[in-house]
Simulated scan of single mutants.
Amino acid sequence: MSDVALKESGSTTSRAALSDAALGHLVLRLVLGINIAMHGLTRVGDPAGFAQGIVNGFAQTPLPEWSVRLFGLVLPFLELVTGVGMLLGWRLRWFLLLGGLTIAALTFGTCLRQQWETAGLQLFYALAYAWLLHHASEARFTVDAWLARRR
């Protein structure tokens, strides 16, 4: 419903809450949040197995095995927490920043392995994080917004 239609209908619904920007932010945040949370959820059942796969993939890189294993053990939980935080919109700016930094670390590793197609895909994730973070003030359907209204 457009802002004009809301005004004409006499609706008490806040125009700001239903703005195109707020709805667009919601859609992208939900899709990215589900994507990242599911990355983590499907991996937390066997973090050691996941980490070993990462270690195997980085065997030909200069990174020490211990650092790759540690990152592989932490990543599933980091993804799950980041995704759920984005879905809820709780401390949204921090979870978006955490997600952006995580994708930066993943991109670094992907470039070390010279997997340019994957690095290109990760650029889309980075753009989504950057757009959401840049427009975090547009977010209305969040725990943060609900808490702010209660104050």
Results as ranks from 00 to 15, higher is better:
G83S: 02
G99N: 11
L87Q: 02
P76T: 11
D46M: 04
A17H: 06
E8H: 07
R69Q: 11
V55Q: 08
V68G: 07
L75Q: 15
T42C: 02
L98D: 01
G53N: 09
E65A: 15
L63G: 01
P76F: 13
G109C: 02
G33S: 09
F95S: 00
L32I: 14
V84E: 07
V74Q: 09
P64A: 09
P76R: 13
G24K: 06
M86P: 04
G100T: 02
W66K: 08
V31P: 00
G45E: 11
P64L: 03
L92D: 07
F50W: 14
P76K: 12
L75G: 12
V44E: 07
A37E: 04
G85N: 06
M38W: 15
A48F: 12
F95A: 00
V68W: 02
P64I: 03
S19D: 05
D20H: 03
P62Q: 02
A37G: 09
L63R: 05
P64R: 01
E79G: 08
Q52P: 00
G45K: 10
P76G: 13
L63P: 01
G57Q: 09
L101R: 04
V27R: 06
S19E: 07
A59Y: 01
L80M: 13
V27Y: 08
G57D: 12
A51Y: 07
V84T: 14
L88T: 03
R15G: 00
S9W: 09
G89Q: 05
G10A: 09
W90N: 01
L80D: 11
W90I: 05
V81C: 05
G83T: 03
L97I: 15
L75W: 11
G45Y: 12
A16V: 13
L26M: 14
G45H: 10
R43H: 14
R91A: 09
V55I: 11
I54L: 15
V44S: 10
E65N: 04
I54Y: 14
W94D: 08
G40Q: 12
E79N: 10
L98M: 12
G24F: 05
L92Y: 08
V55A: 12
G10C: 10
G53P: 07
L41S: 10
I34V: 15
